[in-house]
Design a protein around this nucleic acid. Structure first.
Length: 438
RNA sequence: GGUGGGGUUCCCGAGCGGUCAAAGGGGCCAGACUGUAAAUCUGGUGGCUACGCCUUCGAAGGUUCGAAUCCUUCCCCCACCA
């Protein structure tokens, strides 16, 4: 398939087109910059990796010179989108919602701005204007129920609503059912589109493939009330090559907010992607030139990947979400946390690298006179008993500053500090503990 | 209420007088290999002042030089009968 617009061409290559409402979108995009939007659900105080694709799609549009608008669902968040949900959602209190709105607006703004500082070689002619972040509560709240039913509800056929996938699936699962509240959700999202169309000249809504029903409800409403046509475009639902949902780990979702998941954890999420996912993810989530991605892909194809491709991917995405400085730090921390000898560091460095690692402080005097390794391992809680600690050392699984402890009678003293006042103990491959003298 | 079977270490499960800190498997912990993956392989898996000692086999008593193993009582599970 060939496109007139560079924009759709690019999205196609990136694998980001799932469905679009009509092909005229291509012409519209070729003619010049258009305004488009994507909505984000305030179900938590931070977005997570599952939301990242929407951000990236907006960013791709922005880098092509179009004008994205981000919508946060201050109104819809009070209702709950039934799309793709098997059960009725818990309603959020106004207070929590407010906090969530601030959190995700913050995430959105940062990412969308950083998207412009990356890869100038693929950056088009763009506007540096601040991206509008709008809240649908601002225009939904003033409506009275009666007025909304008369003005907006009139344009919806229940038959059509019932036919939508999001509604149909829920009704078929009789156990769950669907509240009137959630059933009405699509009216609000449809009205959002109409509102943005009128007020911001917004002609395109993008979203995940599960949003198709809500998006087309919007384009229909615009056609009925104004006679104009607006567009919808969805991107595919992303799963890993092995079928895992994007962003999910054993511990749950990985969030964009550094207070929830540190930049290091975020970076690690991407480092741990399978080979088979790397090329796709590089295209979707980074702004690297395609020939550069081709090159990385060929490394994997030749079977020569030693994790470099993942590290490259991780650095790019971490930069987008947490900034370059944090991304670089995550790279350094990863080296330390995966075996590189720790020495000649400052307390500050160690503190930031091992921020999430448990630590114990100890009196300077005790360390000066030396502490047996077995005592140290039990006191720091790395092992629960001395017998257990003994086994660890015998197995060769005990490390100080990433150097293997040589024997059971090893004595630790101040000479082994890796920085002014800290040293790093390790049990096995991953379990770290920071010891600090006070 | 009656009869039969059973409660073993993190879990499952063998053991039925000394050779039992207790087979085997799972899990877990390490190590090797590797790319911070998976798989595989190796070792370990009650505690301690450690070639020895102490505490563990539902609970409490008892027999015995010696008990997870035998006896008594109690508690709890399961099956069948009423």
């Amino acid at each position: 398939m060939s496109f007139k617009s560079a924009m759709l061409e690019d999205l196609e290559v990136r694998g980001l087109i799932f469905q679009k409402t009509h092909d005229e979108l291509d012409e519209a995009l070729a003619e010049g910059p258009i305004t488009l939007y994507c909505g984000f659900d305030p179900s938590a105080d931070s977005l997570h990796i599952g939301n990242l694709l929407g951000i990236c799609v907006l960013a791709h549009f922005r880098r092509h010179g179009h004008n994205p608008v981000a919508l946060v669902g201050g109104a819809t968040g009070l209702i709950g989108d039934p799309s793709g949900k098997s059960e009725e959602r818990n309603q959020l209190s106004e207070e929590v919602l407010q906090k969530n709105l601030e959190g995700i607006s913050n995430d959105l703004r940062k990412c969308l701005d950083r998207a412009l500082e990356m890869h100038p070689e693929t950056l088009g002619d763009v506007s540096r204007d601040e991206i509008p972040i709008v809240n649908n509560a601002d225009w939904m709240k003033p409506w009275s129920f009666i007025e909304f039913l008369r003005d907006v509800g009139k344009s919806f056929r229940v038959n059509a609503m019932l036919a939508k996938d999001s509604v149909k699936t829920r009704l078929e699962e009789r156990e769950q059912g669907l509240s009137y509240t959630e059933f009405s959700y699509m009216l609000i999202q449809a009205y959002d589109f109409l509102h943005l169309f009128k007020e911001h000249g917004c002609r395109l809504q993008v979203g995940g493939s599960d949003q198709w029903g809500n998006i087309t409800a919007g384009t229909e409403l615009i056609r009925r009330t104004t006679g104009d046509s607006a567009f919808g475009l969805t991107f595919p639902l992303i799963t890993s090559a092995s079928g895992q949902k994007l962003g999910k780990t054993e511990k749950g979702a990985t969030y964009l907010n550094p207070d929830r998941n540190s930049p290091y954890e975020f970076y690690q999420y991407w480092v741990n992607r399978e080979d088979a996912d790397c090329e796709r993810f590089l295209r979707m989530f980074t702004f690297m030139p395609h020939d550069e991605i081709d090159e990385l892909a060929s490394i994997i194809e030749r079977g020569e990947n030693r994790g470099d491709v993942q590290r490259r991917l991780a650095h790019e995405v971490t930069w987008l979400v947490h900034g370059k400085e944090e991304a670089d730090k995550a790279v350094r921390a990863s080296k330390m946390l995966f075996g590189e000898k720790i020495e000649g560091m400052t307390d500050r460095d160690l503190q930031s690298i091992f921020a999430d690692v448990p630590s114990t402080s100890i009196e300077r005097g005790r360390l000066e006179s030396g502490i047996g390794i077995l005592d140290l391992i039990t006191e720091t809680g790395l092992r629960g008993s001395k017998s257990d600690a003994r086994r660890l050392v015998q197995d060769g699984g005990a490390y100080i500053n990433n150097e293997k402890v040589d024997g059971l009678d090893h004595v630790v003293d101040t000479a082994q500090l890796a920085s002014e006042s800290m040293l790093v103990l390790r049990a096995g491959k991953k379990k770290y503990h920071v010891l600090a003298v006070e």
